[in-house]
């Protein structure tokens, strides 16, 4: 059985999806990145391996998400694609007649306009986190409500409190103010959901025509309160679809892209990756005032990949050479110092 693997390593969560030739998801997982993308990726691979069909064979791997390059090197991806393309292709596969995609993740949100099964336009919010999952989570913690219960609680409210949602800091102080005025938790949460939706529309949808069906995906789509707030915003006139696999759409999209790409021989490193030791190191190059932060992905003594060199002087080859020179130089310096002391 030919299978395809998609990995989506985002800022907050890591998603993996295993797909067969008919684009059915056989196994998928949704984990927290917890600041360690390599470890999260390994956990995900362990999970997928346990559910891996006996006669299955990985034919292609795709990676996406903000850590797509890192993930791509670690698992051995055949294709590395941006989140927008990956999310769009998954939405089109799930709902072929889709015309708009809302995607709200941990740190960014996207609006994708699709016409005739092709992405026509997109907008992405990366400057401000006010409309994203991290913000909601932060507020849930503040209100002492588990994030899983958050949406449900919003649905219980009969009316919403109006909260300024333009900026996270203002939203928070406004929320505290409303709490102090005596509003209930449920009303405040409902207000927060509405503020987030307003923020999303104001930031991303200006000048764009939103036509339905709308596919709403990403981690935040699990929040019924937000889904309801979107429905209310459009006064129930637009069809909003939340696919059951909303959380892993990016990973699924990456798998579909890998299948479309159809590599002759996959670059997949195998599930043995989980036992290999990767280490990422970083240093600031001080050769010019640009002060590039160079990130190096190492496996034992091998440099697997290197990022961040703006002028292009640092490549795995030049880096290795530098290390070699340094290791040769070091004992020499010590000797010199010793002779100085003696002298």
């Amino acid at each position: 059985m030919d299978l395809y693997l998609g990995v989506d390593v985002g800022s907050v969560t890591t998603k993996l999806a295993l797909m067969d030739k008919e684009k059915n998801i056989l196994a998928s997982c949704y984990l927290r990145t917890s600041g360690d993308p390599i470890e999260a990726l390994k956990d995900g691979l362990r999970y997928i391996e346990k559910r891996f069909p006996k006669n299955g064979k990985i034919k292609g791997v795709g990676s996406t998400g903000s850590a797509r390059h890192l993930a791509g090197v670690v698992v051995g991806a055949d294709i590395i694609k941006n989140e927008i393309t990956a999310h769009a292709i998954a939405a089109i596969t799930r709902v072929p007649e889709v015309r708009t995609v809302f995607e709200i993740g941990g740190q960014d949100s996207k609006l994708i306009i699709i016409r005739d099964g092709v992405v026509e336009d997109f907008a992405m919010n990366t400057v401000c986190a006010a409309g994203t999952g991290s913000f909601l989570e932060h507020q849930a913690v503040r209100l002492n409500v588990p994030i899983e219960e958050f949406g449900k609680l919003a649905l219980q409210a009969e009316q919403a409190v109006r909260i300024a949602g333009r900026c996270t800091v203002f939203a928070e102080s406004d929320m505290i103010h409303k709490q102090q005025l005596g509003f209930g938790k449920a009303e405040i949460i409902k207000g927060l959901c509405e503020a987030l939706v307003r923020n999303f529309i104001n930031n991303l949808a200006t000048g764009k025509t939103i036509e339905d069906p709308i596919v709403f995906q990403g981690g935040v789509a699990a929040n019924e309160g937000i889904v309801q707030a979107f429905r209310d915003f459009f006064q129930g006139k637009k069809r909003i679809i939340v696919p059951p696999e909303h959380g892993v759409m990016g990973a699924w999209g990456a798998a579909i892209l890998a299948m479309e790409y159809a590599p002759q021989k996959t670059a997949f490193a195998g599930f043995e990756v989980v036992d290999r030791q990767f280490e990422s190191r970083s240093f600031t190059c001080e050769d010019c005032p640009n002060a590039c932060e160079i990130v190096i992905l190492k496996e034992e003594n091998d440099i697997k990949a290197l990022w961040g060199s703006r002028c292009g002087k640092w490549t795995p080859a030049t880096m290795e050479k530098k290390w070699k020179e340094e290791s040769l130089k070091k004992p020499l310096e010590i000797e010199e110092e010793e002779s100085l002391i003696k002298g």
């Binding site: 903000s66 694609k81 941006n82 989140e83 927008i84 393309t85 092709v118 992405v119 026509e120 336009d121 997109f122 992405m124 990366t126």
Partner: peptide, 10 residues
């Protein structure tokens, strides 16, 4: 870069 990449895909 993500935006530029997505734009080229489009």
């Amino acid at each position: 870069v993500t935006r530029v990449e997505a734009f080229v895909d489009v």
